[in-house]
Design a protein around this nucleic acid. Sequence first.
RNA 1: GUGGGUAUAGCUCAACUCGGUUAGAGCGCUUGCCUGUGGAGCAAGAUGUUGCCGGUUCAAAUCCGGUUACCCACCCCA
Length: 430
Amino acid sequence: MNSKLQTLQGMHDRLPENMKKRQWVIQRITSVFEKYGFEPMETPAIEYWEILSGKDVYGDEEKLIYKFQDRGRRDVGMRFDFTVPLARVVSSYPDITMPFKRYQIQTVWRCDKPQYGRFREFYQCDVDIVGTESVIAEAELIILASEIFEAIGFKKFMTKINSRKLLQTICEYSGVDKSKEFELFRAMDKRDRIGIDGVKENFEVLGLSKEAKEKIISSLGQPIAQLEKLLPNKEGIAQVRTLFSYLENLGCNMKHIMFDPWLSRGFDYYTGPIFETIIEGTKVGSVAGGGRYDNLIGKFNDKDIPAVGISIGLERVLMVMDKLDMNPKIASPVKFLVTLFDEPTIKYALQVAKDIRNSGVGVEVYPEAIKIGKQFKYASKKKIPFVVIAGPDELKTHSVAIKDMKSGTQETLKLAKLNTWLQKKLEVRK
RNA sequence: GUGGGUAUAGCUCAACUCGGUUAGAGCGCUUGCCUGUGGAGCAAGAUGUUGCCGGUUCAAAUCCGGUUACCCACCCCA
């Protein structure tokens, strides 16, 4: 192993085995996105530093942005997420049709210390709706996430839903200082990892009064109907209620949805409903998360434009799939390997390959006329279902021998009948 | 950014505690049994600057220092 051949810390080669799985998942994700009317979009990997940092969107996280000077001595940074690029795009193309529904699946970079489920270069899949305050937007994103996780084959997953507005109301009601609000949210967010007692300890550090602390914890323990009676301002509750009713109307499978007053999320910029999906029985953390951020785009623009989005963590989805031993059956586009027998019959074999390929299926030709056994082994390793032999015997009779690698049976058929044979096989496979 | 662990064949690991002949195993790979057939079986074979740099020693995979990468926890997040 040559250390000079190493990839950079936290960055990985993605070999075919991984890519096939990855693309299978991405395909499922995009098809659901598009079913709901979202369209693809990409933005550059590198942005002006001023855009990434200037609006103080990321707060402390800013130190995790890859930053450097390009050849023109410009300060630049690598794409950290898709929210800021989206805000820039929406702000610089005023004639975009609103509501703007786009999805973006690309890599992002975070100069974090690599760890379990955590990389420096990784894919994210974002969907956002810009330009509407309607809670229907939230409902669509949540149901769409459910559909995606179902399509991938997860059985036990849960999307937790809460509202920043509701949390703010609870803070107000409990007498928590506005300046401590966000730190409090962060402390709450750790409940899954450190438990309620741990959160209580963290509240201690924040310097909350005993009364405030108790009021918060008891409020968070209430069912939604009780909370509603308790709180002076009903706006947050109303939002959650509306969201749930829309979800039901859209036909969402409610067993994957729950209201969780403890959910708060780590980003500062959320203003309304927030949500997060976890796969049960894993310690990977959340595989999707999002919420409403009505004030963010305004930082790039003169006017506030409401927006809501969700991000699916592709790397984590893949990790969980491995962990749960989920191996999707990925059909190879290549169904036939045409073997080369010897020099004089190469042209015949190539002709046969062309004929099969013309029927619309993938065909590989082994590029060398080596031992036939090795060519079979190659097909076997690459899981190619049929091996075709077009050697001297076949040439003489204008036929081909086709072996079904799964059953091990082999048949010889006339070239003239190849087409109908293919048709029949392809029909069966549908 | 803070703290801990690990690095040996393509892969998973053994040998390291207590330095001592030629660094092993399983899987994989190559070849043959089988000169037109993969998976199973049998037989044979190849592969290592022990991550990298330096130090201690007659002698280092083994001890010490540095360095890089990976893993784990914290922080934070997808």
